[in-house]
């Protein structure tokens, strides 16, 4: 069966006809061509597909597009300012090299932004717990955690701390 869904994605209202079994991640990538949201494991473990639905982080491979009907969705493409200025969390990931291959990065950044919005000054432990739903197979998480700490400070209005080296 097909259904019509209307969502606000990165500030733009979109209406599309979708098969009811369409996952939100496929809707974003294949129909809206927003390919910044990645598909990693496709089994609800890795978090590469994390987006915000009505302000909360969710795994878009584990939600139907029809479930998101009427919702407001933000993807990694919607974080930076219209002039291209990176979101403080994106800038922190770049500054602190919170990535190696970069595949998990969009999901990591979306989770980190959600975490800091709920808890503006997370401890290192809280960051590691808050990122349990995101798997990175390159970095060992060390620089990701540093990046989230610096990103949190910058999101709270501080200046972005430079990497030590």
């Amino acid at each position: 069966m097909a259904s019509t869904v209307t969502l606000t994605v990165n500030g733009t209202t979109v209406t599309r006809e979708v098969e009811e079994r369409t996952l939100l991640v496929h809707f974003l990538r294949d129909i809206l061509h927003l390919t910044g949201t990645h598909i990693g494991c496709d089994t609800s473990q890795c978090g590469a597909c994390t987006v915000h639905v009505d302000g909360r982080s969710v795994k878009s491979c584990t939600m139907l597009a029809v479930q998101a009907d009427g919702s407001t969705v933000t993807t990694i493409e919607g974080l930076a300012a219209p002039d291209g200025t990176l979101h403080p969390m994106q800038a922190a990931f770049r500054e602190h090299h919170g990535l190696q291959c970069g595949f998990c990065t969009p999901g990591m950044v979306m989770s980190a932004v959600d975490l800091v919005r709920a808890n503006p000054t997370p401890s290192e432990t809280e960051i590691r717990e808050g990122l349990e739903g995101n798997i990175c197979r390159c970095t060992g998480y060390h620089n990701i955690v540093k990046a989230v700490m610096a990103g949190a400070e910058a999101m709270n209005g501080g200046t972005l701390k430079a990497a030590a080296e």
């Binding site: 978090g47 909360r56 982080s57 969710v58 795994k59 584990t62 989770s111 808050g130 349990e132």
Partner: peptide, 9 residues
């Protein structure tokens, strides 16, 4: 339970 994203759903 699960992780942050799972708890949101």
């Amino acid at each position: 339970i699960g992780d942050r994203q799972v708890r949101h759903m």
